[in-house]
Amino acid sequence: MPKGHVGVLTIGQSPRMDVTPAIQSILGSEIQITESGGLNSLTDETIHSIAPRETEITYISRLRNGSSVKIGKDKLLPLLQKELWRLEEKTDIIIMLCTGDFPALETSKPIIFPDKVLNHTIKAISSGSLGLIIPLEEQRNSLVKKWNQHNLHIITEVASPYEESDVKGAAKALKMRGAEIIVLDCMGYNMLHKQDAAEGSGLPVILPRTLVARIAAEYVS
């Protein structure tokens, strides 16, 4: 029998075969994972309904077919809430598979929000210049605003985890602009992206998916 049951909630569609195996490797084979996704109820014909308005907070995530999609936050929240209620009935703790801010979500189970974990981690270890690698140009202003609460000097570069992009070059640019530590600010970034960022910059690089997986492992172990 599994020793614990962890839920993984993506803002896109599940299963997230690009992310979940890395989480499972940290949790161990005795921990069961159940996945769900905010866009699971949408089809190829209805996926356009979550396209962001010009002024809306925009996220990006992966669909079941491997393609990526831009998502408007206001349209996503009610879909995400329904999936969260279903997921909490089956699990001990839930990992939110997005580094965005979701204070409106309600759940009766413990939930790990990567944005909170990242913010507190950086606050604990750094007070200088923070380099962010982010997926979309249109996210720049909202993410800088989110991180500014710690009075850090925020520097950003764009390199998407969902298509060919120069993560190594983005990290090198952050280093040249004065960054002292780098956060890959999306759950879509993987260990190869982290390695590229470290090689490009020579700086410490924080990868959200492995960070939150280790916290979940501590909880269920």
Rank of each mutant, 00 (worst) to 15 (best):
T10E: 06
V183Y: 04
V8S: 02
V6D: 04
A173D: 11
L27N: 02
E218F: 10
C186F: 04
L80K: 02
S67M: 07
P21N: 08
Y219F: 14
S41A: 15
I26V: 15
Y162A: 00
T46I: 05
R214V: 03
E163S: 15
M176S: 14
K3P: 02
T46L: 03
V117P: 01
E35I: 11
C186M: 06
V212L: 01
G4L: 06
N119A: 15
V205S: 02
R64G: 09
Q139D: 07
E138D: 12
S61C: 00
M187E: 05
E199M: 11
P161L: 06
Q32F: 15
Q195D: 14
Y59F: 14
S127P: 04
I112E: 08
C98A: 14
P52M: 13
I31S: 08
G128V: 03
G100I: 00
V19T: 15
I206W: 03
S201D: 04
G169H: 12
T210W: 05
K172N: 15
W85R: 09
A197I: 07
L76Q: 09
A216Y: 05
S25H: 12
I23Q: 02
S29C: 02
D101G: 02
D166A: 06
A173G: 04
E218W: 13
I31F: 07
S68T: 06
Q149L: 04
P161S: 12
R86F: 09
A171W: 10
R140I: 10
H5G: 00
N148I: 06
T156C: 13
K168W: 09
K82G: 00
M187Y: 05
E218S: 15
K82S: 14
I125M: 01
S41P: 07
V117R: 00
I182Q: 01
E180N: 06
G28M: 03
N65T: 11
P15Q: 09
D92W: 08
K123V: 02
I206N: 01
D196C: 00
A198D: 04
S41Q: 12
D185A: 00
G7E: 10
Q149Y: 07
T10Y: 13
Y162I: 02
R177V: 07
A173C: 13
S49L: 15
K168H: 12
H120V: 02
P21A: 03
Q13I: 09
L39F: 09
R62W: 06
K123A: 14
H193Q: 07
R62F: 00
S127V: 04
A22E: 14
A124T: 12
Q195R: 14
K194D: 01
L42T: 07
G12S: 10
L174W: 05
K82C: 03
L9M: 13
L152R: 11
T121D: 01
L184H: 00
G38P: 06
V158T: 15
R140G: 01
N151V: 00
Y189F: 13
I60A: 03
D115T: 11
Q195P: 02
T34H: 12
K75E: 13
K70M: 14
L136I: 05
G131L: 03
N119W: 08
I94D: 05
H150V: 04
S221C: 11
W147L: 07
N151R: 14
I93R: 14
A104V: 08
P2A: 09
I31E: 13
I57L: 09
V117S: 05
T107K: 05
L80G: 01
W147G: 03
R53D: 13
P161F: 04
G200E: 02
I31L: 06
